[in-house]
Design a protein around this nucleic acid. Sequence first.
DNA 1: AGTCCAACTTTACACCGTGTAAACTTGACA
DNA 2: TGTCAAGTTTACACGGTGTAAAGTTGGACT
Lengths: 197, 197
Amino acid sequence: MSSKNSETREKILIAAWRLLEEDHASGVRMADIAKEAGVSRQAVYLHYPTRGALLVATARYLDVINKVDDRLVKSRAASSGLERLDAYIDALAGYFPKIYGVARAFIAMKDTDEEAAAAWADRMHAIRHGCAAAVSALKKDGDLKPGLTAAQATDTLWMLLSVPNWELLTKECGWSQKRFETTIKSLAFQALTGKEP
Amino acid sequence: MSSKNSETREKILIAAWRLLEEDHASGVRMADIAKEAGVSRQAVYLHYPTRGALLVATARYLDVINKVDDRLVKSRAASSGLERLDAYIDALAGYFPKIYGVARAFIAMKDTDEEAAAAWADRMHAIRHGCAAAVSALKKDGDLKPGLTAAQATDTLWMLLSVPNWELLTKECGWSQKRFETTIKSLAFQALTGKEP
DNA sequence: AGTCCAACTTTACACCGTGTAAACTTGACA
DNA sequence: TGTCAAGTTTACACGGTGTAAAGTTGGACT
């Protein structure tokens, strides 16, 4: 793996990241990324054969930078289901602003690029897995709302904790990160447990 | 307006609609639409100067076909805020499956095409307006959850009633339309009024 | 010193999809 | 008969992705 870590690779990832993060991220082209990285366009293709592959690599890079795993430790360590749900929502909501640019690029590409679609589906599936774990902890404690199946609860939580929802509320409606978190948390607790957080 | 109603125009709109509705809607090109309509690619450009314009026209066409206004009459006629919210959610949720294909095309284009972005923003804004009206009716009746501003309530409802949420639950999770409706309704009532529907 | 190699640059080009341009056809209507 | 609108056909410019291949350069190894 370390053989893959040339400086250039990282410069390219950082450039992609920066450009995607900018709000006019609409059309970030390979040439733009190359320019931002101070490298020829061909050098980009040398390391990342397609735009999709570069996007995937950028996403992985951000995971490392943002220490995703560390963020999720707290939620996994929670002693009760309710705590776990609370911590998971915190962790994920806090992650959204950091990956938003890349996420948007994925969402835009997923209808045309098979590779990007698969990669994005993977990431979404990972999030759903976390949702399922939180729901399962709730169920174990008997805190799951009566009449609600674990699958339904998982899906509902997954929907609430989606990038488009975060985008709509913070970007379109101008909500603060804090308000987003508390509102989604309240919705999730009401929907899954019938209680307030 | 009637001068614009050549048969060909409609054939093109129907073709666009059909192709966008198909699940492999990923890359519906102008040439595909022309072929489906049984018309030359140039004929399409003759009537709709850009892909974005064609998309906008298709959306308007679907509005007419689906009699959007009629659908919304019931919710506007509701005598109480609670009834109105209920009816509005029904109307909108029922609308999603019909416009999904086109909506997806808009969402995919909105990052690159200015015209499409504006048109989509318009439609989203119209939905938000409906949400605001329902919230306003709730408030008038004193049914809005204490401590919740009208704006916040509107945004929350708007988020719940978004195409990506509908897509996630019905397409990814395999929910039935009915389940989607009752779940969203329950979430919305809990969040806005603190009561169950 | 000479050579070799990997990383990178430069230049060029194929492919696709959008959109433009212009000449040609056809059928209806006056 | 002539004209006009609506279409067709053919051709092409443009921009973005991805491929190909020849040239440069700096360091490592002998």
